[in-house]
Design a protein around this nucleic acid. Structure first.
Lengths: 215, 215
DNA sequence: TAATAATGAGTAATCACTCACTCATTATTA
DNA sequence: TAATAATGAGTGAGTGATTACTCATTATTA
C-alpha cells in the first residue's frame, strides 16, 4: 500500500474520484486537521500549508470548504457504515454461523475493527453530528433500514432457536451498539489510547450474551 | 423558580458567581447558542443580541469568549457530574438499599434525570471534548476517583452478597455508563427527541441486571 | 455627586473565496 | 518528425466580510 497513514476505507473512497496527487493531498490534510482541530478551527490556508499546495488548488476540486467536509463525511456516513454490516449479514444469517455467540463475536469484532481503522472519520462525524442534525438523521435512517431487513431476520432466527431474549430488534441493537461505543468513545476522546480488539470483543460478547440471553 | 428554561444545575451554579441580571442573561444566551450552533459558530455579537445587551457587557465579567465557555463547562464537568453520584452513594451503600436491583434502578434513574435536566451542557461538553483533550482527561480522572472509592465499595458489597458478577469495578461501571449513554446520545443528536425516564430506567435495569448477574 | 454599569462605534486580525495568470503536458497540424 | 495550438492543473496576491476584543462616552444607581 502506498500510504499506510490513510485509513483503508478513506483511501478506497479516494480512488473513486478522479483526483490528482495534490488534490488527494488536500483531502488527506483536511482529514487530519478536521479530526485534530475540528472543522471550524481549521482554515483553508492551514490545509494548503499541510498539503504543500496553494490555496487555489484547495478550491479547484472542492468549491467550498464545506465541500471538503462533505467529500470526507458523506461516503463514510451514507454508505460505508451500513454497507459493511449488511454485506456481512447476508452470508451470516443463512447457514454458516448458526450459533448466536459466534454471530455476536463476529459482528462485534467487525465493528471494533472498523472503528479502529477509521478513527479520524469517526471523530469528525461525531463532532459535526451535534451541530448538523442532517447527519444524525441520515444515520438514523440507515440504522432503521438495516434493522427492518437483515438484522430483524437474524434476531428472529436466534430468538426462535431460543438463544436470544425476545425483545424488539431496535432494543437488542441498541445494547449491542452501546456496548461497542462504550469502548470506542474513550479512544476517540483520549489521544494515544488504543484497543486490544480481541480482548474487548471477548469482554463485550461475554457481557452481551448474558444480558441478551432468554430469561 | 424564576426562569424554568434554565436547567436546574446551571441556575444553581450561577448563584455562586456575583452577576448582574444582564450578565446572567449573557450566560443563558451563550448556553443556548453554544448548544445549538456550537462554540465556534456563535459570535459574541450573537450572544449580545440574544441577551439583549451590548457587546461591552459580554466582556465585563468574562474577559474572553473562551471564558464564557469555561464558566459553563468547567463547573459542570469538574464538580456536578461526580458529586451528584458520590453524595448519592454515601447514603446508599450503607443500609437503605440492600438490593442490587434497587441500587441499579436508583443510580440509573438518577443519571437519566440528570441528563435530561442538563441537555444543553451535555451537548456543549460532547462537542468540545473532542477538540479539547483537557476536558476528557478531567472527566477520566473524576471517574477514576469515583471508582476507587465509593463505587468500588458498593460493587464489592453486592459481589459479596452474590448479586453481582465478579468483574473489575471499571468494567462494571463501563457497561452501566454505556447503557445509559446509549439512550441519551440519540436525544442529544436528534432535535425534539425525548425520553420517558421511568420507561428507559426499567429497560436499562432489566438488561443490566441480566448482563451483570453472577453466572 | 461619586461610583459603577452599560454602551456601541472602532480596530486589527483572520477568514473563505476569487481570478488573472503561468507553464508543463497533450493534441493537432504541416 | 517538428512546430504549433489547446488544455487545465496550479498559483498566490488580493478582496470583502466577519470576528474577538477595546475604550471613550453615556446612563444608572446609591
Amino acid at each position: 500500500m502506498a500510504n499506510t497513514d490513510i485509513p483503508a476505507l478513506f483511501a478506497e473512497s479516494l480512488t473513486n474520484l478522479k483526483l490528482t496527487d495534490k488534490q488527494k493531498a488536500v483531502l488527506e490534510a483536511s482529514l487530519k486537521l478536521f479530526s485534530e482541530k475540528g472543522f471550524d478551527n481549521t482554515s483553508t490556508s492551514d490545509i494548503a500549508k499541510l498539503a504543500g499546495v496553494s490555496e487555489g488548488t484547495v478550491y479547484k476540486q472542492f468549491k467550498t470548504k464545506a465541500g471538503i467536509l462533505k467529500a470526507i463525511v458523506e461516503p463514510f456516513a451514507e454508505n460505508v457504515i451500513p454497507l459493511a454490516a449488511t454485506e456481512f449479514l447476508d452470508e451470516v444469517s443463512t447457514e454458516n454461523l448458526p450459533d448466536f455467540k459466534d454471530f455476536l463475536t463476529t459482528v462485534i469484532k467487525n465493528r471494533f475493527q472498523f472503528a479502529m481503522n477509521n478513527l479520524p472519520q469517526l471523530r469528525i462525524l461525531f463532532h459535526e453530528a451535534i451541530t448538523t442534525p442532517k447527519i444524525s438523521e441520515k444515520i438514523s435512517k440507515e440504522i432503521l433500514t438495516l434493522l427492518s431487513s437483515n438484522l430483524k431476520q437474524a434476531y428472529l432466527f436466534y430468538q426462535t432457536k431460543g438463544e436470544l431474549v425476545k425483545w424488539s430488534p431496535d432494543r437488542i441493537f441498541r445494547y449491542m451498539i452501546s456496548t461497542v461505543v462504550g469502548y470506542v468513545i474513550p479512544v476517540l476522546l483520549i489521544p494515544g489510547l488504543t484497543l486490544d480488539v480481541d480482548q474487548v470483543t471477548k469482554e463485550s460478547t461475554e457481557f452481551l450474551l448474558k444480558g441478551l440471553s432468554p430469561k
